[in-house]
Design a protein around this nucleic acid. Structure first.
Lengths: 155, 155
DNA sequence: CCGCAATAGCCCACTTTTCCCCACTTTTTT
DNA sequence: AAAAAAGTGGGGAAAAGTGGGCTATTGCGG
């Protein structure tokens, strides 16, 4: 569904254009209704079509009421989610708080992750990519570090 | 229902504006009648539409009379709850005692948690978020520490 | 029982943000 | 090379948020 990374300029008002190749998909998937929120693991944002987001929200809601993880996810991930709508020019307006969280400046990178998208600042994206590549290679050298699921990923 | 976080300025009189996107919902859900109280676990306040609050109150009342946790909830959560009414400009006035409890100063954050809302001081909110994020990341680095619940939350 | 002070409520005015639209530049396509 | 499409930027109107002043109400002390 979503694939590849696109460098995009955020303008002074905090808007960013969604690449055209996604627009048709977004249109009939969710009529341009998106949900954006933070990523707990990384300094980036997650952008999902509304139906996809609902599936996640339901999973979180289904967790036991006193589960600390569920509480955390509900409070910080759901709690910081915002509904967005593509504007007439196929752009979205990034909420200020989330812009701050992900340290977004003018140059941002939109990364396709199949069902959803990630939004990174260019600086963080490059840093994270280099870092991950190194640790990935290190992991391959370390016996036992490869999960079963990954072993079966024949590619 | 409620989703996302909004930074809001409390004015010198202790009033805070409720974001407009909630007003219509609040209007036909409870005609602007809200209940505010403390959160026992965190340094924040809980704001709920009256009908939602009633459900909670009934559940607490239904607990066995000698249940110590129930007693606590009833005494301190129900005991400190206050009815609020949206004013003509869509604002609520935060009771002084509760303002103190949650350490609210000028900058507060309103967090949407589906059925209800949370009110945090900006400082406490950021601190709590950073803390949670750290422990979340630590959990991921520690193999085996990931609960089944999380594994199923493949998102 | 009355007056004073403090708090709460109402309303208006100002500032900031958001939304909508158009125009310009760059890239791709024919 | 021209035309079309995509991406970028900005102006202006509208709406949301913020703050302050004025009035009404409450509660307290005299």
């Amino acid at each position: 569904m979503f694939r590849g990374s696109d460098p995009i300029n955020m303008d002074a008002k905090g808007r960013m254009a969604i690449p055209t190749r996604y627009r048709a998909v977004l249109d009939d998937l969710c009529a341009g209704e998106l949900v954006i929120t933070i990523d707990m693991k990384s300094t980036c944002l997650t952008l999902s079509p509304l139906p996809e987001w609902r599936r996640f929200e339901e999973k979180v809601a289904a967790l036991p009421a006193l589960d600390p993880l569920g509480e955390m996810l509900s409070r910080f991930v759901v709690g910081q989610a915002k509904d967005l709508q593509l504007d007439g020019s196929g752009r979205i307006l990034l909420p200020t708080e989330l812009r701050d969280y992900a340290e977004l400046e003018k140059k941002v990178v939109l990364v396709g992750r199949t069902q959803r998208l990630e939004i990174w600042s260019e600086a963080n994206w490059n840093a994270e990519r280099d870092k991950s590549q190194q640790s990935y290679r290190a992991m391959l050298d370390e016996p036992g570090a490869i999960s079963d699921a990954l072993k079966n990923l024949s590619w």
